[in-house]
Design a protein around this nucleic acid. Sequence first.
DNA 1: CTAGACTGATCCGGGGCCGAAACGGATCTG
DNA 2: CAGATCCGTTTCGGCCCCGGATCAGTCTAG
Lengths: 116, 116
Amino acid sequence: MTLELKPVQALALWQDVVLETVRREGPDLSSRQFAILLTVYLTSPPHTVRGLAGALNVSKPAITRALDALGQLDLLKRKRDEADRRNVLVQRTVKGSVFLRDFADLVTSVAGRLEA
Amino acid sequence: MTLELKPVQALALWQDVVLETVRREGPDLSSRQFAILLTVYLTSPPHTVRGLAGALNVSKPAITRALDALGQLDLLKRKRDEADRRNVLVQRTVKGSVFLRDFADLVTSVAGRLEA
DNA sequence: CTAGACTGATCCGGGGCCGAAACGGATCTG
DNA sequence: CAGATCCGTTTCGGCCCCGGATCAGTCTAG
């Protein structure tokens, strides 16, 4: 079974969620930063700078900066790969898990209020 | 009837959509700009700078700048209110309609591929 | 051991966005 | 009228992000 979602519902869902995140004065992530966050939490490790750059079709410095910002917010952390010290492994944090769980709840709640 | 969406599905949906929009090298809108765009197209007119600023809980100059950017992209246009020439009415454009319809199709298509 | 490949970080000039404050035009009010 | 008020825009100093080029550290093949 797949999830049915009409175009008008999709836009309404997006609007409510984006509006809510804009209104709340929480950490305001760019779409790239958010994409990185979601990718790290939803796809299987390991996650490297180069890998993320390729996955998002973005330059390496952009990933480095995004990791700086996300690390500052404690939503993600870096760890040297001891097996190959050239690599940096991007890992989850407790705060990041909580942040994404809250976000998921927001989306489901908005979806629940949507007329189907 | 309401729309059922589990937290894990919500995150997966969001990741796929955000990842796709980041990868595509289309106009890369900030969340505020996108929120403005959605608000103008989904809620009933008239839309003024002050009204949008209040709705998004954001300063007026931020709205002005966002309208500059969205106008440059031809996704939205400004029009003087002839009844009260202090006001600026924000209006839709053909290109904006197409842009949002495409986006809605992207979301529905991703949702359709989601395991329910 | 060394030359080369590969990693992530940094440098750099350029550009966008930020909010507070000030501005000019339009409108209302006394 | 003149002053107060409302509107959107502009100015200002500051901060963050952009990507190409380059860097230092690490690994590997010969």
